[in-house]
Each structure stands twice: as structure tokens, then as C-alpha cells.
Computed example of a mutant assay.
Amino acid sequence: MATRTRRAQRRTEALTRERIVEAAVELLDTAGESGLTFRALTERLATGAGAIYWHVANKNELLDAATDGVVAAALAVEPADSPRDGIRAAALGLFDAIERHPWLAAQLALQLSRSPWGSVTPRIFESIGRQVLALGVPEGSLFTATSALVHYVLGAAGQNAANAGGPPSEVDRAEFLDAVSQAWEELDPGDYPFTRAIAAEIRGHDDREQFLAGIDLVLAGITAVHLGGDAGADR
């Protein structure tokens, strides 16, 4: 009996908030938000619910902490040679994180819309906004320029992650894109002239390249509007 008590004490002492959050991320990745329960956590961590509640008050706090932990890791990129490279690196970090963690896109949308005072939204804005500031965007335009980038990154990455829930392999993806392209090509030319014109581009496109091309378009717009065309091109 005493031995079991000492083991329980050691297990409780070894339990940290960081380990709980790590286990929560694992559960979210494998079972989704509905699978993240304190009962599932106690089983995964081999501990009691009380030990978990000592570190985390409720599921919402746990979701916030899991989201913040994943975002922090995604934005921990190497220093870039230029603000543009820094923006691209942060954007790709978030893109890859959202692709790896299917639950993340929905949590980020909630964070931005319902609790922007939490840790996640400032973390994302700080990471990208510092680079926008370094580009030379004037005060008074920083929020708009940074918001445009943030919303593009999260929107495009979230849509890509949603699409990734479909075809599981490159062969299936190629077949899927070919079917989409063919369907668009067969649309009524009078009603869908533009959609028909771009249908062939659907085949074989690379999601990451398309994502980065979108970042470059947003940056080109910021440069043209706020930095006088090519003024910030090499910054």
C-alpha cells in the first residue's frame, strides 16, 4: 500500500502543465475536439482528474493552451535575411501547423473572433507585424497591412487543411483535381467564362507554391500602396 502511494505521489509530482498540454494536442490530433475529455486525459497520463484540474481549470482553458502551444512552435522560425523572408517563414510555419493539426484552423478562427485578448492572436500579430513594421509600412497603416496578411494566411491555410481531409494520396489527389478541372471545363461558357478559362490550372498545382504566391501578391500590394512601388522590394 505504501509503495503504491509513493508511486502515485511521484506520478503526480512529475505531471506538469506542459505535459498535460502535450497530451491534449495528441488527443486533438487523433480524436478531434470531441475526443478531448478529462477522462481521456487521465487515461493517457495515468493520473487522476484532480491532478489535471490542479494545472488546468476546464476544457476551454486546455484548448486555448493547446492552440497557443502549437502556434508558438509554428512561429519559432530561424531569423530571416529580410522582412519578406520573415513573413514567408512565419506564414509557412502556420500553414504547416494547420495542415498537421486538423483541429487548429477552427480554434484559430475562434481565438481571433471571440477572444483576441488571449495569447494566440497577439502572438500571431506580433510575429507577422514586426516584419511588416520592418518593411517600412508607416504608422497608421500597420494594422490594416498586418491584418490582410494574417487573414490571408489563416484563411488559405485553413481551406487547404479542409481540402486535405479528402484524397489521402498523391494519385487520388491528381485524380480528384483532374475531375474538378474537367467539371469546370464543361460548365456553360456563357455563364462561367472565367471559371472555364482557369480550369486547366487546377490540374497538378502545388498547394504550398500557390499559398506562397498569394503571400507575394499581398506583399506586392502593401509595397505598392505604402512603399511607393519597388521602394521596399529588397528590404
Rank of each mutant, 00 (worst) to 15 (best):
7 R>N: 11
8 A>C: 01
8 A>G: 10
9 Q>N: 06
9 Q>C: 04
10 R>G: 00
10 R>I: 11
13 E>T: 11
14 A>M: 07
14 A>N: 08
17 R>H: 06
19 R>K: 14
19 R>H: 11
19 R>D: 07
21 V>N: 00
23 A>D: 07
24 A>D: 01
29 D>I: 02
31 A>L: 08
33 E>Q: 12
33 E>F: 01
33 E>A: 11
33 E>K: 09
38 F>V: 05
40 A>T: 03
41 L>P: 05
41 L>S: 07
42 T>C: 13
43 E>P: 00
44 R>L: 11
45 L>P: 03
50 G>E: 06
54 W>N: 15
61 E>D: 13
62 L>D: 07
67 T>G: 08
72 A>I: 11
81 D>G: 14
82 S>D: 05
85 D>K: 11
88 R>G: 01
88 R>K: 09
88 R>S: 09
92 L>Q: 14
93 G>C: 06
94 L>M: 12
96 D>H: 15
97 A>M: 04
98 I>P: 05
98 I>D: 02
102 P>F: 04
103 W>E: 10
103 W>G: 08
105 A>L: 02
108 L>N: 10
108 L>S: 08
108 L>V: 07
109 A>R: 15
111 Q>W: 08
113 S>I: 14
119 S>M: 11
119 S>E: 15
120 V>A: 04
120 V>T: 14
122 P>K: 09
122 P>V: 08
122 P>Q: 09
122 P>G: 07
129 G>C: 09
131 Q>L: 03
132 V>H: 03
134 A>N: 03
136 G>A: 02
137 V>T: 02
139 E>V: 07
141 S>N: 11
142 L>M: 04
147 S>D: 14
147 S>Y: 12
147 S>F: 11
148 A>L: 13
148 A>G: 12
150 V>Y: 08
151 H>R: 15
151 H>I: 13
153 V>W: 05
153 V>K: 09
157 A>P: 05
158 G>E: 06
161 A>T: 13
162 A>Y: 06
162 A>M: 10
163 N>M: 15
163 N>G: 15
164 A>H: 15
177 L>S: 00
177 L>Y: 06
177 L>C: 02
179 A>C: 04
179 A>I: 00
179 A>S: 07
180 V>E: 01
186 E>N: 06
186 E>C: 04
187 L>H: 00
187 L>Y: 01
188 D>A: 00
188 D>N: 04
188 D>P: 01
188 D>Q: 00
188 D>L: 00
189 P>C: 01
191 D>H: 07
192 Y>I: 00
196 R>Q: 07
197 A>L: 09
202 I>S: 05
202 I>W: 10
203 R>C: 00
204 G>T: 00
209 E>I: 14
210 Q>N: 14
213 A>C: 05
214 G>R: 07
216 D>Q: 11
217 L>G: 14
217 L>I: 14
218 V>D: 15
218 V>I: 15
219 L>W: 12
220 A>T: 11
222 I>M: 12
223 T>F: 13
225 V>M: 15
229 G>A: 08
230 D>S: 14
230 D>K: 14
231 A>C: 10
232 G>R: 13
232 G>L: 04
232 G>T: 09
232 G>K: 10
234 D>S: 09
